[in-house]
Structures are given as structure tokens and as C-alpha cells.
């Protein structure tokens, strides 16, 4: 249930740690796993903020970016009757073309991404459930 003002963890290595949802793209209801949203970067990762990471952060605080929701606290119902609920809301930043900004993803992502055809994010993710 990602909507305006929802704070999400950013789980890629783009440099953003915490982002705020500013808009749900393409639909009038709340966003779920696999939906595209517009976010504002609120906090950078500590490594990037301290300037320790190589190459520097790709995004900065205050940046407006697109992102894909990969985990939600709200239950996602599946076709076979099972449902899944994560501990946190998480997203991965993408550019306007739909390619991920970061090059790595830390943490599990929901397999609803496969249905929504986010294959690049799925291939980067260490685990999909």
C-alpha cells in the first residue's frame, strides 16, 4: 500500500537509503509490488554520505527519481491462495527508460515482479520469494 508520503527503503547501491513516495505512476490506487512510483530521495547511504564509496553516489538527497516497489508490508495475495507479507516497504530506483540506476540489489524481492516484467531487477536480486 504505497501512496503519497510513504517512506520506503531503497535496497540498491544507487546511493539512496530512504525515499519518499511522491506519486504512483499510471494508476489511481495505491502501489503494490512491481508498480512504478516517483520518489524523492530523503537520505543517502552512510557510505555514500561519507564519500567512502567508489565512484560517488548516483543520486543525492532531494533528487526526484522513478522507482519500482519490490517489497510491501501489505499482504500480496497470490493466485494459488498463498499470500506474502514483508517486514518493510522497499523499492529499487530506475531511470525513465526502466533500467535500474544501481548495479546491485541487497535483499529479497517479491516474485510479482516477474509478472510485471521487471526482469532486470529480478536478475540482479539475490533472492525472490
Amino acid at each position: 500500500m504505497i501512496q503519497l508520503k510513504t517512506m520506503l527503503n531503497c535496497i540498491d547501491n544507487s546511493g539512496a537509503a530512504l525515499v519518499e513516495c511522491a506519486m504512483v505512476v499510471g494508476q489511481k490506487r495505491h502501489a503494490s509490488i512491481g508498480d512504478r512510483i516517483v520518489v524523492v530521495v530523503q537520505e543517502q547511504t552512510k557510505a555514500h554520505a561519507a564519500g567512502m564509496a567508489s565512484g560517488g553516489p548516483k543520486v543525492k538527497r532531494g533528487d526526484i527519481r522513478h522507482a519500482v516497489v519490490v517489497r510491501t508490508r501489505y499482504r500480496v495475495q497470490r493466485r494459488d491462495g498463498s499470500s506474502i507479507r514483508f517486514e518493510d516497504n522497499a523499492c529499487v530506483l530506475i531511470n525513465k527508460a526502466g533500467d535500474p540506476v544501481g548495479s546491485r540489489i541487497n535483499g529479497a524481492v517479491g516474485s510479482e515482479l516477474r509478472k510485471k516484467k521487471w526482469s532486470k531487477i529480478l536478475s540482479m536480486a539475490p533472492m525472490q520469494v
Partner: peptide, 14 residues
């Protein structure tokens, strides 16, 4: 899973 808590419902007769 990967340090993230996950809750899943399963139908046992599925």
C-alpha cells in the same frame, strides 16, 4: 530471508 522478515500464508491442501 536476507535479513528481511517475511510472512507467508500457505493453503495446506494446495
Amino acid at each position: 530471508l536476507t535479513k528481511v522478515a517475511v510472512e507467508m500464508w500457505f493453503k495446506i491442501y494446495n
